[in-house]
Design a binder for these strands. Sequence first.
DNA 1: ATAACATAAATTGTTAACAATCCAAACAGA
DNA 2: TCTGTTTGGATTGTTAACAATTTATGTTAT
Lengths: 220, 220
Amino acid sequence: MIVEHVLDAVADQRLQAGTKLGEQALSDLFSCNRAHVRRALATLAAHQVVDLIPNRGAFVATPSEAEARDVFQARRAIEATIIRNVVRNADAADLTALRAHLEEEDRVRHASDRPRAIRASRAFHMLLGRIGRNSVLENYLSELTMRTSLIIGLYGSDRASLCDDDEHSRIVASIADRDEATAQKLVDIHLRHIEAEIDFGKERPRGGPLSVLIQTSSPE
Amino acid sequence: MIVEHVLDAVADQRLQAGTKLGEQALSDLFSCNRAHVRRALATLAAHQVVDLIPNRGAFVATPSEAEARDVFQARRAIEATIIRNVVRNADAADLTALRAHLEEEDRVRHASDRPRAIRASRAFHMLLGRIGRNSVLENYLSELTMRTSLIIGLYGSDRASLCDDDEHSRIVASIADRDEATAQKLVDIHLRHIEAEIDFGKERPRGGPLSVLIQTSSPE
DNA sequence: ATAACATAAATTGTTAACAATCCAAACAGA
DNA sequence: TCTGTTTGGATTGTTAACAATTTATGTTAT
């Protein structure tokens, strides 16, 4: 449960890379004992979203450039198979959900609500992951989108933060057409576009407050 | 360090699926306190190789049939990209290492040393993962081969336990030829062969001793 | 003999206290 | 003013003890 809150905060780019996750601070925030915090940090470390430095504590991971490239390549590998599954498995309800999501993205974009736009962008990919119906790939995608959030927060330009809505809608169209080859190609290009927006030259300041953990996180 | 020992034992099929990992037992085996054991179990659970049941303890995971199919599909997705990287990146030293490994596999097979054969089979795939030079994919492959070991231990027939050496050698040949398409196809077929050897009908007995954790594990 | 139940042992969960390490601020000397 | 040292506070690491739950044992009744 602590884990979920931290993961959400990282995914939404509320928690910045490099932020220290003190045991005391966390156990205060979630009003629990340190043992729980330590277990949560261990699983977060296993998922590579926090670094555990002996005698120093836990910090939100700061992916290197090399690691970032590996993450993007892994996403292309995994989402290629996921989109194939989606094209094959998607039923009417799934398509309805996808179109509903596109509308939500459109709405949020026009409201220029940046935090919620980030959340919606990620949610699109996770929705594909769910429709793909492979829990292993879905879990990996969850990890990789999380790490992508960290990477964009570290090196991304402002516009890079969110996916291009139009690309998303074209992907949905190809799914509806059952056009496997096009869908795969569109996803691949989409991911390369996201990666291209990143500039490893200017590294942003890292480390921030962790009061964001209990933020209302803009539900719905 | 505890984690590594458990992972090794699972990969070598010494630790059977369903085996209970008692905290006391582990802290005795590794002569450490329970806090360390609990942290190790948390990370193992994050990697899906143990199930953590509240108030009951930790057990080596027993993958279901559906999960097994997901694992194999994920392996095909990931190893397809890995082998592509290998064909592109492999230098002379890498090819030498691959050929040396093939000889080792051959040697072990003729000695009919089953435990070491299992270890060598997995080592081949992990060697490809290393040569691929994508640490994210390498880590995922490590997880997936681990879970494959559990699956084969649960549902596999006797011969299914190890990869076909000939398929391995043909893969190496295609790498040496820089024949990307052939290499990818061979790996895909190879993984499908492994999956085909599995019979989900007869589930093996699960749960076993955990004295195997400190076994000499046949070094070299 | 089997089933249900009560009791005892073992295991996991939780908490607190103490030790070791690291970090920051104050301080002395050049 | 800058460098190096010392000291105090805070944080992580470790251990032990206690509570809660489950599992095993053994008894009794049908």
